[in-house]
Design a protein around this nucleic acid. Structure first.
Length: 588
RNA sequence: GUGCAUGUAGCUCAGUGGACAGAGCGUUUGCCUCCGGAGCAAAAAGUCGUGGGUUCAACUCCCAUCAUGCACACCA
């Protein structure tokens, strides 16, 4: 169905056309002066110059066409040339009742039915998830859900960093630590052990040690490079170690992502793209795209419109090894053959923007993806501490994601147990749900591309623009509805009544806006728009709640109307938090 | 050096070329015989970094400038 703004725009377009003006001037927006009207159209002022008429005259003519339209309670022209609009309560009610019985509230996106790949940009195997991985997971999960809600087929790929230099580093460190392992015995010809030579916690310690060593010890670094190359070349011993690393690491990563309620359709990694590299490079060479520069094989990506010189994209290192860009491109080859996607969305730290610019351009230049494939890089900012610098633990290290989650859940638990009378087990369960909501909402309510300040006390607060406040509002509605049902009344969905107070109409207008909002969040890939919206809806609902006796209402039809209204409020809020990737408890 | 991003209330953040720039936190002050007070209402608080320009109209678009952050090929 059309959104309410589209419906009003359509009516205005007809009026503009009828008066002899281009329909493009009939654009309607939400009013920025709610004290004057609900919706507004500023087109008369824009049209004034073209038609050489006073803006107010144009506005008057248009308004005169629409005075009697049943859509409007009031439509008037004001001062310089604004057209101010209030919709009729009866129409609004009908709109909401249609929404309440329609699938997805009647949301029909303009652009849809595409296959979209969401790439979460590589947690590294053998390294614990840290807070740097939080944003990619949280934002990506929400983007994925929004895309699906809009009818797209979405394939989310965790896309592990499982093939780069860090593997060589780990293997070499393992050799130094334990040279007697059969993997390092070149004369060994038997089967390598099926049991891994390390546990997850040992594995997690190996990488930082190796990384540090590589910076101080040049020969160690050289060995790591060589080993990486040999692993990529198919060395059996290294492949056996690699497999152990993968198995252990994946299981641990999965556990952590489950905790975050983040799920992937694919657990592919850079290694999966390896078989595609050789042919891809050959084709690039055959097409004359590549040339040699300082021993490496590169492709130019400069375009005339560029303001600055962009470095060419390296597709093969001077030592013959593949690198980041190579495997990203080869991964596209694989995805094209497996899924024929129409769009790609990559999530990564915004500092990687240049890399993705290069890769995207090469992908189109080399014909790996179709020319009209929609390539999006969703770069996100850093999570900072209260001091405005990248978030660190007290000791100055990088914080592990699982500790961060635990901290926030513990903090919520303390609040719940102090404020509510409930069992320990129940409080723990609620703390889990509410804690995750606090964390995700705290992140998603900011524009993804900006840095933001992580403040645990603010995020878990039940006041203000926070996850817990939203959940509190929903729980409150749930509580009223269950009380209503306990009195033996069924909830009827499409019984919203014409508003009998300003605040009730405000709530109705806010709910009607859902369709416009969700399309905007989808088109702009902007979860924070959903946060902003549900915060507004929650505020308005709470005002309504405080000024209106719902269950105490004597008039049965009116009461039914209130119930239908708050039920729709609840359903919309629940839909929104689901799109953000968290849930709501029954009480808290 | 070049390019990109950011700069809005004390703090954290919204803001679609339109009317008087909005929230929350914090501060001050009201409201519990109330369906969840973990709430609601009210007040104070702004040269929208600075200076130009385009426009009937600029926080929004353009140019310059200052500040901060980031990136600038063989890491990912």
């Amino acid at each position: 169905m059309d959104t309410i703004i589209e419906k009003i725009s359509n009516v205005l377009s007809q009026a503009f056309t009828l008066c002899g003006y281009d329909a493009k001037y009939a654009k309607v927006t939400l009013s920025n002066r709610p004290d004057l009207c609900e919706y507004q159209c500023n087109g008369a002022m824009a049209a004034a110059k073209v038609y050489k008429k006073a803006p107010l005259t144009i506005a008057d003519e248009v308004v005169n066409q629409l005075k009697e339209d049943i859509l409007f309670e009031q439509i008037e022209s004001i001062k310089p040339g604004f057209i101010n609009i209030c919709v009729s309560p009866a129409y609004l009610t009908e709109f909401l009742n249609t929404m309440s019985v329609s699938k997805q509230f009647g949301y029909v996106p303009k652009v849809t039915n595409k296959t979209v790949i969401v790439d979460y940009g590589g947690a590294n195997v053998a390294k614990p998830l840290h807070i740097g991985h939080l944003r990619s997971a949280v934002i990506g999960e929400s983007i994925k859900r929004i895309q699906r809600y809009a009818g797209n087929t979405v394939i989310g790929d965790v896309h592990l960093g499982d093939w780069g230099l860090q593997m060589g580093l780990i293997i070499e460190e393992l050799r130094d630590k334990n040279p007697n392992l059969s993997y390092f015995d070149e004369s060994f010809l038997g089967e390598y052990p099926s049991e891994p030579p390390f546990t997850i916690s040992e594995l997690e310690q190996i990488y930082p040690v190796a990384s540090k060593k590589s910076k101080e010890d040049e020969t160690f670094m050289e060995r790591a490079h060589k080993t990486t190359l040999e692993l990529q070349g198919g060395n059996k011993a290294y492949a056996a170690i690699w497999k152990h690393i993968m198995n252990i690491s994946k299981a641990d990563l999965k556990k952590n992502y489950d905790e975050l309620h983040v799920a992937f359709d694919l657990w592919k990694g850079e290694s999966d793209s390896q078989p595609y590299i050789k042919d891809m490079l050959q084709q690039m060479i055959d097409n004359g795209l590549t040339y040699e520069s300082q021993g490496a094989m590169v492709i130019d990506i400069q375009e005339e419109s560029d303001k600055k010189e962009l470095p060419p994209c390296i597709v093969q290192k001077s030592d013959g090894a593949a690198l980041y860009a190579t495997s990203d491109l080869a991964t596209m080859v694989q995805r094209e053959s497996d899924y024929h996607p129409d769009a790609y969305i990559y999530l990564a730290d915004k500092r990687q923007e240049l890399h993705f610019t290069q890769v995207f351009r090469v992908a189109k230049k080399a014909g790996i993806v179709k020319q009209n494939t929609d390539m999006t890089f969703l770069g996100f900012g850093t999570m900072n501490g209260k001091d405005g610098k990248p978030f660190k633990t007290r000791s100055g290290g990088v914080m592990r994601l699982e500790y961060l989650i635990k901290d926030i859940q513990d903090a919520v638990y303390d609040k719940v147990i102090n404020n509510r009378d409930m069992s320990n087990e129940e409080a723990l369960n609620i703390a889990k749900i509410v804690g995750l909501a606090a964390l995700k909402y705290g992140d998603l309510s900011n524009q993804a591309s900006k840095d933001y300040v992580f403040d645990i006390d603010r995020f878990i607060s039940f006041e203000g623009n926070t996850g817990p406040y939203i959940l509190y509002t929903i729980v409150r509605i749930k509580s009223i509805l269950s009380k209503y049902q306990q009195e033996g009344n069924p909830i009827l969905y499409n019984k919203v009544q014409a508003a009998s107070s300003n605040i009730e109409k405000s709530l109705q207008l806010a709910l009607a806006r859902f369709l416009d909002m969700i399309d905007m969040a989808y088109m702009e890939k902007a979860p924070h728009k959903i946060c902003q919206y549900i915060y507004e809806v929650s505020n308005i609902f709470n005002q309504f709640y405080h000024s209106t006796k719902i269950l105490g209402e004597k008039d049965k039809e009116k009461k039914q109307g209130y119930i239908a209204l708050i039920c729709l409020t609840k359903d919309i809020l629940l839909t929104c938090i689901d799109l953000l990737g968290f849930e709501c408890p029954d009480k808290m």
